[in-house]
């Protein structure tokens, strides 16, 4: 009899019991740290005040204020936006082009699709190291090829005017394959009849793309631009591994600043302020792009 009661209790509350592990972990690993980041950003928490709590003070918005006058941080914001502004349109455009080319089941299309996608399943850390070798001024193959074409060897990553452009190039190359896959998935949803109708009207491949594929990929494109923008703002691995933000802060980024403030300078308060600013940027970008979506999809 008692056993039956337990069973019926468990069964009546199955919804709560099945969802509680995930809810508990999300609360502990997302909500609590988020609130902590917010609170910490208004304090001077640092390595020093961790050891001696007497040093801990509430400093109001002073972390934010000092960040907005911090030369390195402003450069980081500028660099990150520069990276994003170049990477997002170029990568999305390239990915769309790739998707149009490899859409289909012919063998040559499968071959191309695989090679476009390979960099995506190679980790960014590995690719950063590989590109450091490729762009090595003395033993890197790129400079050797340039010299064979009688072009002067370039400093690439070691010069402040070229370093960020190198990172931009490799990032576009790395990520385009992923966006291509999303575009391909979007293209599958386009009704075949539209292309058949277009064929009756003798439309050219360009017209097919301009008047059928592209308009119907509108939502996919917005989605791709949204995630690419957010990924781009997170730029960290490449500068951390390849240039450490240099030369002369030319590749310093927001997340690299966050990391350095916390683990090089030991100022967790300031790092938390960057965390929150970063969240605000990401939130703004998503809200703006979400509003570009037609109403019926949002619901």
């Amino acid at each position: 009899m008692k056993q039956l009661n337990v069973r019926s209790f468990l069964d009546r509350n199955a919804g709560l019991i099945l969802s509680i592990p995930a809810l508990f972990i999300l609360f502990l690993m997302v909500i609590v740290p988020f609130v902590m980041a917010l609170v910490t950003s208004f304090t001077n928490l640092s390595v020093k005040s961790l050891l001696n709590p007497n040093h801990l003070q509430i400093t109001g918005v002073s972390n934010y204020a000092s960040l907005l006058t911090d030369r390195a941080f402003l450069t980081a914001i500028q660099n990150t936006f520069f990276f994003t502004v170049l990477v997002v349109p170029l990568q999305t455009g390239l990915a769309l082009l790739f998707a149009v080319i490899v859409k289909g089941t012919a063998l040559w299309q499968k071959v191309l699709k695989t090679s476009f996608f390979l960099p995506v399943i190679t980790s960014m850390a590995v690719l950063s190291v590989v590109w450091t070798l490729l762009l090595n001024p003395s033993i890197g193959p790129i400079n050797t090829i340039l010299s064979l074409l009688s072009i002067e060897p370039q400093p690439f990553l070691t010069h402040k005017s070229q370093a960020m452009l190198c990172i931009i190039t490799m990032s576009i190359w790395q990520g385009a394959g992923f966006q291509m896959m999303v575009f391909l998935a979007g293209m599958q949803a386009i009704p075949k009849q539209l292309y058949e109708a277009a064929a009756i009207e003798h439309s050219s491949p360009w017209q097919n793309f301009r008047y059928v594929t592209f308009p119907l990929l509108r939502n996919t494109t917005i989605f791709v631009i949204l995630i690419t923008t957010i990924f781009a703002f997170k730029l960290f691995i490449q500068p951390h591994l390849i240039t450490q933000g240099g030369p002369q802060n030319a590749t310093m980024t927001i997340i690299l600043q966050l990391y350095n403030q916390a683990f090089v300078n030991g100022s967790y308060g300031k790092a938390s302020a960057i965390s929150i600013l970063f969240f605000v940027i990401v939130l703004t970008v998503s809200l703006v792009q979400r509003n570009l979506l037609p109403k019926e999809i949002k619901s």
Partner: peptide, 14 residues
């Protein structure tokens, strides 16, 4: 929408 980067420092402290 909350990026992991925002949670990294407090998770480290925690």
């Amino acid at each position: 929408i909350i990026p992991f980067e925002t949670l990294a420092i407090p998770l480290f402290l925690m």
